[in-house]
């Protein structure tokens, strides 16, 4: 049912790796290491700046894919992957967008499940990819039937 949206993308959205957000995020996962939050420590580090934890891209805005409708309940987050060219630096600007990478259906004990794979990208101002992310979402049979009505 989502086959027709494979390959659809959002428009790029400008995001900042904002110092306050990085601090709050690091605290929320119990990882308040000075490499993330202490300015002087960051300056002395090999990065010359503070960096962000690897799952920080959760906070970015990736824009909307107009053709994609996902219900806000009944979805199961199945898998998540990140790939980095380098860590994100506090203070830098990242341009983010998302794409429907795949959709397939699989028989399971819970019925026929739908799997939608969203790929997300983070680029610098020159268009170099800094990170990519794959999020695999499981759509249960109940929700799938609801949607096809």
């Amino acid at each position: 049912m989502y086959k027709n949206v494979i390959g659809k993308k959002s428009k790029k959205v400008k995001n900042m790796v904002e110092r306050g957000m990085v601090k709050r995020f690091a605290e929320s996962i119990g990882d308040s290491h000075p490499i993330f939050i202490d300015e002087e420590y960051g300056r002395q580090s090999r990065y010359k700046k503070n960096i962000a934890p690897p799952t920080f891209p959760r906070v970015f805005d990736y824009g909307e894919i107009n053709e994609l409708y996902l219900p806000n309940v009944g979805l199961i987050h199945g898998e998540q992957t990140y790939h980095y060219e380098r860590p994100l630096l506090v203070g830098e600007t990242i341009y983010c967008f998302t794409e429907v990478a795949d959709y397939y259906e699989k028989k399971a004990s819970l019925g026929l499940l739908g799997f939608i794979v969203l790929k997300r990208y983070g680029e610098d101002a020159e268009g170099n990819t800094i990170f990519t992310e794959d999020q695999s979402i499981i759509i249960t049979e109940t929700i799938r039937k609801e949607l096809s009505k």
């Binding site: 090999r46 690897p54 199945g78 990140y82």
Partner: peptide, 14 residues
């Protein structure tokens, strides 16, 4: 260990 390297790939199944 983030001075020694970084997490290049992080893959998780819930």
């Amino acid at each position: 260990y983030l001075e020694e390297g970084f997490i290049q790939d992080y893959k998780i199944r819930f």
